[in-house]
């Protein structure tokens, strides 16, 4: 750590000579993306903010925001489903990531490839294929019927929606956790054994605390898309659940009430930003003295 700090200082010193030319070049290099951001990220965000605080006549109003209390239940349900999906992803993903990280390098690559494979297929197709499994006349149902159970459909249950979220986003949990675990110094793990940790205690006292940053980024990458999804809940929820993503989509697609939709989007964005900030703080502290 000390060394890397020194190296960084040296690099800084060496680069300061040509800083001027480089920053000039760097600015030009950044231009395309800046243009892109302005057109497709910043401008739309301004529109969202504009619609959220205006009525259909274009007058400034807080009404859209205050009306959001009507959607409290939808918010709660979305948070609830996404939280459960995230927790399930951690429970399944962490052991898997740990398992992969402890394999030999060549096998690690194979397993990561297998893990990434579903991500090359469109999310829509993946969700449709889940429907084929869970549906009334679907594979699972047919199988159960052949065993003598009654014909049943899983579509329209909360479980199916959560399953869909887990199924679609699990790789995003495994990858960052795998990366942090595989970067843990082997000697730290040996040191834990040396000081008296058996396998389980090593995981509990050393591997897990050191992989918290991976869990945090995994949580962000699963929770954020889960809470804003509309497709999964529509297809697998069978219309029984109205999640926040569905509500927003409906505002824009069917009702053409941009103002309410924009208000919901804005509030949700702010909520997500706040929760991310809280989590980041949490993970920063963890590098230091949280245990004390």
């Amino acid at each position: 750590m000390n060394n890397s700090a020194k190296v960084r200082k040296k690099v800084l010193a060496a680069s300061s000579k040509s800083t001027i030319e480089r920053s000039w070049l760097a600015r030009i290099a950044a231009c395309p993306h800046i243009l892109w951001s302005v057109l497709f990220i910043i401008a739309p965000l301004m529109f969202v903010a504009y619609f959220a605080f205006t009525d259909s006549a274009g007058n400034f109003t807080f009404e859209n925001i205050t009306n959001l209390t009507n959607y409290g239940e939808t918010f709660m349900l979305s948070v609830f489903f996404s939280l459960i999906a995230t927790v399930v992803c951690i429970i399944i993903g962490y052991p898997l990531a740990y398992f992969i990280a402890r394999l030999k390098p060549r096998k690690q690559k194979l397993f990561i490839l297998l893990l990434m494979l579903p991500m090359w297929i469109s999310l829509l197709i993946r969700t449709y294929s889940l429907m084929a499994l869970l549906d009334n006349g679907g594979i699972i149902s047919t199988f159960l019927v052949s065993l003598g159970f009654e014909k049943l459909s899983f579509i329209g249950t909360g479980g199916a929606v959560i399953l869909g979220m887990v199924y679609d986003y699990l790789p995003y949990m495994v990858l960052p956790i795998y990366t942090t675990i595989s970067k843990i110094d082997v000697r730290c793990i040996e040191a834990a054994a040396d000081l008296g940790c058996n396998g389980w205690q090593t995981v509990k006292n050393v591997v897990f605390p050191l992989s918290v940053p991976g869990i945090i980024s995994g949580v962000t990458m699963v929770f954020v898309p889960s809470i804003s999804t509309f497709y999964i809940s529509q297809k697998l929820g069978g219309g029984a659940f109205d999640l926040i993503g569905d509500t927003i989509e409906r505002q824009f697609q069917n009702k053409l009430t941009y103002h309410t939709g924009a208000a919901i989007s804005l509030v949700m964005m702010i909520l997500i930003l706040i929760s991310l900030a809280v989590m980041n703080r949490f993970s920063d502290n963890d590098g230091g003295e949280i245990i004390v």
Partner: peptide, 13 residues
């Protein structure tokens, strides 16, 4: 054991 590059636990003080 005292390891070659110390192998202290970075998450602990």
């Amino acid at each position: 054991t005292v390891f070659q590059r110390y192998a202290l636990f970075p998450h602990l003080n």
